[in-house]
Design a protein around this nucleic acid. Structure first.
Length: 283
DNA sequence: AGCGGCGCCTGCGGGC
DNA sequence: TGCCCGCAGGCGCCGC
């Protein structure tokens, strides 16, 4: 579920509870999520200080005092909930344990971090911090869409000569890392590009326009605390509210929001996933 | 080499 | 009420 803005929101919520704080104990309640947990994960986490929390694409990375880095991926349904902060910055007391609470980190400051993931498409792994960017899951990622390496020339060269639909291209994490189904639909709407359009056939100005549009959509979503569909929560349990700003996602049959456009939002399926767009103003 | 499709899981809402 | 179906924010892997 969570795309870059939701992961960034979660990371920001975790930071005050975790950064510079020792993990007193880790409870690992099952052997795996999408893949087996690394061997001795609980022991390798316990007693380590979280020196720094970072985000790369949709991954949260926790650099530990041991020289290892904990990689966390939320998959489709993963949540990280902070509770019991002694300074009262966060929600309430520790909640009663719920089904699908797979990993619980008990912090020395009294905070508790609960990783809950019903569908178990999420993941955790441990790696050497020094070579973290060579981790199998991170090595293949393209530039951060909010970073300096994501620019017009990059997109133009990535799109050149490809007959791939632009929707699939932007979902390809090797091309740009962090977009998912929602924000690709929203960005293509703002750029007035139809999701089925082949990348090679897009004009340079349209491709160029995608760069600031993608940055804007993601920045606005981060500002709003992400999008809450179904079960997404910020780390403090609060809802994000960017879903109220969707122009097309989940709006099948509703009126296009472009001023004076008579269009109605359509839903089509591209490589098994819903695309939402206005056939009037997206060409 | 690059793709679309499939599978991994659980839960929810709608239709019957 | 209950069952079945379709659907869900991701992503690695397979076969074509």
């Amino acid at each position: 579920m969570p795309e870059l803005p939701e992961v960034e929101t979660v990371k920001r919520g975790l930071t005050p509870a975790m950064e510079g704080v020792v993990i007193a104990r880790a409870d690992v309640n099952r052997p795996d999520l999408r893949w087996p947990f690394p061997r001795d994960m609980a022991a390798r986490l316990s007693g380590q200080c979280v020196d720094r929390l970072r985000r790369r694409s949709k991954y949260i990375l926790a650099d530990l005092s041991s020289g290892e880095t904990l990689l966390i991926h939320l998959g489709m349904s993963g949540r990280m909930l902070v509770s019991g902060d002694p300074l009262g910055h966060f929600v309430h007391d520790h909640p009663v344990p719920e089904k699908h609470d797979h990993v619980v980190l008990h912090m020395e400051n009294g905070a508790r971090i609960t990783f809950n993931d019903p569908r178990r498409f999420g993941a955790m792994d441990l790696m050497q911090t020094a070579t973290a960017d060579r981790h199998k899951l991170l090595a293949v990622l393209g530039p951060e869409p909010l970073g300096n390496d994501f620019h017009e020339a990059h997109l133009i060269s990535a799109f050149r000569g490809k007959m791939t639909p632009v929707k699939s291209a932007l979902l390809d994490q090797r091309l740009v890392a962090g977009l998912g189904n929602i924000y690709v639909c929203e960005a293509l709407f703002r750029a007035k590009i139809r999701p089925t359009q082949k990348t090679a056939k897009l004009s340079k100005p349209k491709v160029a326009s995608l760069v600031p549009i993608i940055r804007d959509v993601l920045s606005e979503a981060i500002e709003a605390g992400g999008s809450s569909l179904r079960d997404f929560r910020q780390a403090d349990g609060e809802l994000g509210y960017f879903q109220h700003s969707f122009d097309v996602y989940g709006r099948e049959g509703e009126a296009c929001r472009t001023p004076d456009c008579p269009g109605v939002i359509k839903r089509i399926v591209q490589s098994g996933r819903s695309s939402f767009y206005c056939a009037q103003c997206q060409r």
